[in-house]
Design a protein around this nucleic acid. Sequence first.
DNA 1: TTGACTAGAACGATTGTTCGTTCTAGTATC
DNA 2: GATACTAGAACGAACAATCGTTCTAGTCAA
Lengths: 198, 198
Amino acid sequence: MVNTAKINAPGLRPTQELVLDTALHLFSERGYFNTSVHDIAREAQVSIGSIYHHFKDKQGIAQALYEQLVARMGRAFDTIASTHPTTHDRCRAVVELLFQLTEDEPALMAYMLHAQHQEFMPGQAPVCSSRPFTQMRAMVAAGMDTGEIRPMDSLVAATALFGGPLRMISLRLDKILEIPLQRYTAQVWEAAWHAVAA
Amino acid sequence: MVNTAKINAPGLRPTQELVLDTALHLFSERGYFNTSVHDIAREAQVSIGSIYHHFKDKQGIAQALYEQLVARMGRAFDTIASTHPTTHDRCRAVVELLFQLTEDEPALMAYMLHAQHQEFMPGQAPVCSSRPFTQMRAMVAAGMDTGEIRPMDSLVAATALFGGPLRMISLRLDKILEIPLQRYTAQVWEAAWHAVAA
DNA sequence: TTGACTAGAACGATTGTTCGTTCTAGTATC
DNA sequence: GATACTAGAACGAACAATCGTTCTAGTCAA
């Protein structure tokens, strides 16, 4: 087993975590195909052998990363759903969380939203059908049942509500927006809610 | 021997066009990095040498394709702007055009919206700052001047108005939506316009 | 000793690109 | 009309470099 002291030692994190972290940053900066396994090894200061001991192949790194991030975001959305009673507040909290994540961990957000996962993970369902996105659509559907949201196709409602905020995130990740997203939260949310409010 | 009729003969288009067309479809199906120049040559039934005679390198193909599509879309938006007096009608026409393009030429749309151009065309500005997107933002800004659109940050207004429709396009390209986009035009537009209408 | 882990040289396959050549069509010369 | 010449287009074998992966050797804790 891995010595537990090692885990807590500053700068000496378990290889697996180190590799995933390095891969995330390289993938989201240069893209999956512009990042070689050798690059990851060099950057993480880990040997090729080590990497292949922990991961089946290069795709396995991307897959593990993806699943980890999706799970993490799913959990965050669960928390939001259970701490906010109304659809309005839930969805607003989701937008706030996404904005904050974009500012705090842009690499994570870029890998989740901008990467074309199907290109390097064949067979993988598109992000839009991953759990976090499903959760978002479920929130909207629930809001239509309670009457908070105007009756319409629930998929249309979900894209109408989150489409704007998500595009703001894209603009920020592409560095077209130079100001932190949080400054826009109020305006963005007001417009988004107007789109679907009853 | 072969005369000029060759150019007009069905199925025998000039090499350059043939290569670009083949590249567009391969790029948008498998992605740029999963498509080798050999693949393009094989699929287009053209020799490697021919390709390199017409294009500087692989990136040159992607670049030519990109510029061609951006220019085409820019022209279409120009036409829309000059044939519709109000911002409301202009923007709605834009959404209708985008929906129609997505149905008629999904490869084109996928290459414009989903491809991560910066990964294979380093230095290229992100799509969001290409002319078509600039035109869309200009329409919105104009609408705010005339009072059709509620006063707010014009970038926020643009993302609020077009964010929903663009996400619908993404869902359709990812085949999560199985029904033609046109069926949703009315609902999508109503919600989008509500987001920003004065 | 065993088993988990690390190391990094080496390998085979693929890729983007080059280059010498052939082919085609048009033009000038006789 | 026949011939010689030229420019552009097309061809595809060959090349160098890179990449993902494997393999063998070694380390260290239990």
